[in-house]
Amino acid sequence: MNNIIRYALQGIAYTVFCLIIYFLSTAPAYNYLEADQAEIKLAFKHASQRLHDCTKLTRADLKKLPPNMRKPKSCPRERAIVQVIIYLDGKMISDEKFIPPGLHQDATVFAYSKLPLPAGDHLLSVNMRDSARKEGFDYSKKEQLSINPGQALIIGFDSVSKELIFTY
């Protein structure tokens, strides 16, 4: 093969190599959110309520226990599942349950989930249950919001003031 042709083909080989890098280093573009979308992030740490109340042990119950484990009250450690239901403009868009981690299901829940929402004005309503109750909710918050495209709305929970918080 003629040297000029060889060098030209080598140039093409280097060009193809660079084109692969050129293309795959930034393309195809990935649409994480559509241009007219925003994002809700449900994110909080919370230790839910205990499932069972402490009970006072009888003398007979105490006798059954080894001497070093005899305490007047028995307090089961298991905590309630945290349930969060989100309504957008009156329509339910998410219903999630977070099981407390740990062998005894007694540790703090790290609640985290994401969902897209269209940008614009919305009525956001969040209900949360963190106890053994079957009906109703322990915490609720409703707010009229104006969300811009690409905005991240964080639904949090303040464990001190015991209230749901919207940050955006």
């Binding site: 573009a29 990935y30 649409n31 959110l33 241009a35």
Partner: peptide
């Protein structure tokens, strides 16, 4: 406080 829309990965 923002989420990305188009990303050039």
């Amino acid at each position: 406080t923002q989420s990305p829309t188009i990303l050039h990965l």
